[in-house]
């Protein structure tokens, strides 16, 4: 039987704020890690939209970034490496009245989990996917990631990365994503707008965030981005123009765009799935009681 002498890890209460706030778990990220700005933006976006904390589920995989759900007071599911998206999709289809947010890293989402990422976008399942793209594997102490820069020296590439980096924005556009944005955790206010916009978007919203790993990525630092980023919103970009969005996604170098690349209305998976039209699956009647006629076809 339970050994009651073993104390829980933190104070034995869970704050149950009606609106999402901080949990009593303090983030465990390195001081200065970009992910602090991301959790702050997610919290502020949810607060701004006044979504009850009981109706929010934050889902993640594994990585420094994937610890995020613990630091907010909503529901959460901290799953396995690379699988936050199918887990989040299952939750959405189980109860599509929930606000489901998936968070994770570049390795989690574009490496091991790339297949799920693509398919969730073409399905347009309504969830918000926020990647803390530090262009490195943080939790495993600094190996190359799918977005690491060509030539970058990491522990797994001591002589430099020899693979061309994946472009998450272009990949999202090509995969049929209906809300594609890029944020910078050094600009929390702007990022909050993007996340809030994503949560309100009817369909899959993807927000790739430059979220520097101050410990293992000495190339893509806060300063690196501060010197380069410019906002699409103040540069005449039309986010309903897919080819313009593709054009902008290719910009890299001295000037790197952040903001909303593309947004379009398309029916969501939940709109198209007939069984969900009568309400959330979780509240629908279940079982075959009194449905004897289903056996007739076997005669």
């Amino acid at each position: 039987m339970a050994d009651s002498a073993v104390a829980p890890i933190v104070a034995p209460t869970t704050p149950q704020f009606p609106i999402v706030g901080k949990s009593q778990i303090k983030p465990t990220w390195c001081p200065g890690c970009g992910d602090y700005g991301v959790v702050a933006s997610v919290e502020m976006a949810l607060k701004r939209l006044k979504i009850p904390s009981k109706d929010v589920v934050i889902v993640s995989g594994i990585g420094c970034s994937s610890n995020l759900p613990h630091f907010l007071s909503s529901y959460g599911f901290h799953g396995i490496h690379g699988r936050s998206i199918p887990l989040a999709e299952g939750i959405r289809w189980g109860n599509h009245e929930l606000t489901v947010i998936a968070t994770g890293g570049d390795g989690d989402g574009f490496g091991i989990g790339a297949g799920h990422f693509i398919h969730a976008m073409r399905r347009n399942v309504k969830l918000t996917y926020v990647t803390m793209d530090n262009q490195i594997y943080g939790l495993t102490t600094g190996q190359a990631s799918p977005t690491s820069t060509l030539g970058q020296k990491t522990k797994s590439t001591p002589t430099g990365v020899i693979e061309y980096p994946l472009d998450p924005i272009a990949l999202a556009l090509a995969s049929g994503a209906t809300y594609v944005a890029r944020g910078f955790s050094g600009d929390v206010k702007h990022l909050t707008d993007l996340v809030a916009g994503g949560i309100q978007h009817k369909g899959f919203s993807f927000i790739d965030v430059f979220s520097p790993c101050v410990t293992y990525n000495k190339v893509n630092t806060f300063d690196f981005f501060r010197q380069r980023v410019y906002k699409l919103e103040s540069s005449g970009h039309n986010p309903s123009d897919l080819s313009a969005a593709f054009q902008r996604s290719l910009e890299w170098g001295d000037k790197i765009p952040i903001g909303l690349f593309y947004s379009v209305d398309r029916p969501t998976y939940e709109d198209m799935e007939e069984v969900l039209q009568v309400g959330p699956l979780v509240h629908q009647p279940a079982g075959l009681k009194g449905r004897e006629s289903v056996l007739d076809e076997f005669i």
């Binding site: 589920v57 889902v59 299952g90």
Partner: peptide
Amino acid sequence: SEDELASMNMAIGASYAGV
């Protein structure tokens, strides 16, 4: 699903949601 990794995770997600 797109593969069985997704199948299992989706099933778990739906069950976590109460289905």
